[in-house]
Every structure is written in C-alpha cells, then in structure tokens.
Amino acid sequence: MSMPIESMLLAVSLNFLVFSVSFDDMIGQSFASLVPTMAAVESAIGLAIFVITFRVRGTIVVESINCIQG
C-alpha cells in the first residue's frame, strides 16, 4: 500500500520541480525537498509496525497478520 503513495509523492515532487524551474521560483524546490522526508517517515512507520508485530507474535507471517483487529 505504500508503493502507490510513494509514486504519487514522486509525481507531485516532479511537478513542483518543473513548475519551479519554469516560473523561476525556489518555493517549488523547497516543497520538493519535503518528499524524501515524507518517504523516510513512511518507511520508519512501516518498519515500526513490523517490529511490533514480531515482538508481539514472535513471527511475521502474513496469514497471522490478517487476524489483527483494533
């Protein structure tokens, strides 16, 4: 589920960069620098979910993750 979000963020970043160059403005480039930050946050959250699942269940099996409710 994080791959489509990552693709959308990269597309928005590319648009910011292109419009920044065409309008000769630095604001688009500063917004484009936030995209890698968001990608790092997204990866950290995903890794934290896997670590917590491993600590609680002792294994990371996809079939056992399906029964998580809450």
Rank of each mutant, 00 (worst) to 15 (best):
M1E: 13
S2Q: 07
S2F: 05
S2K: 06
M3C: 07
M3N: 11
P4M: 03
P4C: 03
I5F: 04
I5Y: 07
S7E: 14
S7F: 15
S7A: 15
S7P: 04
M8I: 15
M8H: 14
L9M: 09
L10H: 12
A11N: 08
A11V: 14
A11R: 15
V12K: 02
V12E: 03
V12H: 03
V12I: 10
V12S: 02
V12P: 00
S13C: 11
S13T: 02
S13I: 03
L14I: 05
L14G: 06
N15P: 04
F16P: 00
F16K: 02
L17W: 05
V18Y: 12
F19K: 02
F19V: 02
S20V: 01
V21W: 10
V21K: 09
V21R: 12
S22K: 10
S22L: 11
S22V: 09
S22H: 11
S22G: 06
F23A: 09
F23Q: 13
D24F: 14
D25G: 02
D25F: 03
D25N: 10
D25R: 02
D25I: 05
I27C: 08
I27V: 14
I27N: 11
G28H: 00
Q29Y: 12
S30Q: 13
F31D: 05
F31K: 09
A32T: 00
A32W: 01
A32Q: 00
S33Y: 08
S33M: 14
S33L: 12
S33I: 10
L34W: 07
V35Y: 03
P36A: 02
T37D: 13
T37F: 14
T37W: 11
T37C: 14
M38G: 12
M38I: 11
M38T: 10
A39S: 09
A40I: 08
A40W: 06
V41S: 07
V41K: 07
V41A: 10
S43R: 12
S43E: 07
A44W: 02
A44H: 04
A44D: 04
I45F: 06
G46D: 11
G46I: 07
A48L: 07
A48S: 08
A48T: 04
A48P: 01
I49L: 08
I49K: 07
I49E: 00
I49D: 01
F50G: 05
V51H: 11
I52F: 04
I52H: 03
I52E: 02
I52A: 04
T53L: 08
T53S: 09
T53W: 01
T53A: 12
F54Y: 09
F54C: 03
F54Q: 13
F54G: 05
R55Y: 09
R55W: 13
R55C: 14
V56I: 15
R57E: 08
R57Y: 08
R57Q: 08
R57W: 03
R57S: 05
G58P: 00
G58A: 00
T59C: 09
T59H: 11
I60L: 09
I60P: 00
V61H: 13
V62M: 13
E63G: 03
E63T: 05
S64M: 15
S64F: 05
I65W: 01
N66V: 11
N66C: 10
C67L: 13
C67N: 15
Q69D: 13
G70F: 04
